[in-house]
Design a protein around this nucleic acid. Sequence first.
DNA 1: ACACAATGTTAGTCTAGACTTACAGTAAGT
DNA 2: ACTTACTGTAAGTCTAGACTAACATTGTGT
Lengths: 102, 102
Amino acid sequence: MTNGQPQLAALADPTRREVFERLRAGEASVGDLARGLPVSRPAVSQHLRALKAAHLVTDRAEGTRRVYRIDPHGLAAIRTWLDQFWEVALQAYAQEVARSEH
Amino acid sequence: MTNGQPQLAALADPTRREVFERLRAGEASVGDLARGLPVSRPAVSQHLRALKAAHLVTDRAEGTRRVYRIDPHGLAAIRTWLDQFWEVALQAYAQEVARSEH
DNA sequence: ACACAATGTTAGTCTAGACTTACAGTAAGT
DNA sequence: ACTTACTGTAAGTCTAGACTAACATTGTGT
């Protein structure tokens, strides 16, 4: 149980995924992210810490605010993990198609 | 909080991810999958139900056994969701490189 | 120095869900 | 029909973690 892929666990929570999707529109501060969400600001701060631990976001100090943006490293890790399954999956799909056609 | 991407929640659990990774070697029955895992067989059965609900696996009856294999549909859903972030992520990365070089 | 604004952190509560045990169902062999 | 494999399901327990409230910290402006 090597427990790799912390990115998948990080993106499993709906609220955390919502935060991450909002960063798709560009970098934003904690307050900006928490503004439209139904949870408190500290909750968003904790979610951002989890996303940062999974290398999915990066933070930068800008005065008293902290600006977060998407980190490509976490995305790359997911893609690499995901690509391991494609050959097997497509092979299985081809077999199923062949079975249903005959 | 539209709660899309049930695949990410399904693959967040380490045990469930281990089951999924074992199917990469080819289709297998519930007992075969549970044999090398530190959890009981009903636990594996429940995990397979979750994976099936997320369209990550397909099951087929073979006598009294049930054979599971990887389903490409769930993988495709993850890839589609993931691809939405790449342009933004690479753009952010390029900016960071430019900042550190000057 | 003081006030304010933005965020991180801690302690504590509470719910989702991972797990086990026990039971039910179904197919194959004798 | 009976037994044996193999699996799904239900009920109950228990822990990880999502959330809030309160406090600590840091930077900015006057």
